[in-house]
Amino acid sequence: MKELCLETKNLTKSFGRFTALDGVNLQIEKGEVFGYIGPNGAGKTTTIRTLLGILQASSGEAFVFGKDAWTDAVEIHKRLAYVPGDVNLWGNLTGGEVIDLFVSLRGKSDKARREKLLKDFDLDPTKKCRTYSKGNRQKVALVAAFASDADLFILDEPTSGLDPLMEQIFQEYVLEQKNKGKGIFLSSHILSEVERLCDRVGVIMKGKLIKTGTLDELKQSAADSDGKLPDSMETLFMRYYSSSV
């Protein structure tokens, strides 16, 4: 049996009356890229924040590296790298300073790797974060994540502001980590990205994980009456959406 990076059992999170996550069961193995897809507001970010111990689960369990995501958060985070979907930074610090800070809060830094990442992602580290575009802020978070020697990468729509060339660079880095045997949890809206990177995919809608499997299996199960497979994320979503209603 393969070793698990991450596991949730009946993970449920409610905010007042609203149930954001409803009994989610996830398993991610080492050396696996797991794609997490679903419409806006489906519960992707809530799942991630619960896994990070920023939110406490209402019921159910979340384990990362076999440890409880809430009580052992700090221990877990020593081996984890995270890129949020909406990267908000401190306007008066430079990108370089933020990267160094982020890396140092996890552990040791590798100067050469930092320089290579800055060059590959074409990021000027001397600029104040205030002046960065959305894409550049994401690059700061990506450089900090890939510069750290983590065992699990949690990436929340990390490329929504990147140009196609940077998207390529990003994919290369993800595959590099996968080949090193790291686990990657990737929430994404971009079908080509999911297609190229992900070994398995989970679809979440209205807080419920409605399907997990390889992308091919997902496409098969969403085939229309003529057996035609969905050719885009839109059609995949639409099929699932109409069947879930």
Binding site: T94, E97, D100, P125, K127, T131
Partner: peptide, 23 residues
């Protein structure tokens, strides 16, 4: 004008306390 800043962080920034102090 906003001047370009340091390309890497000073040692003093590299802790949660250092960040709060810097902010």
């Amino acid at each position: 004008p906003a001047k370009p800043g340091r390309s890497s962080a000073a040692e003093s920034l590299l802790s949660p306390f250092g960040l709060s102090f810097r902010l």
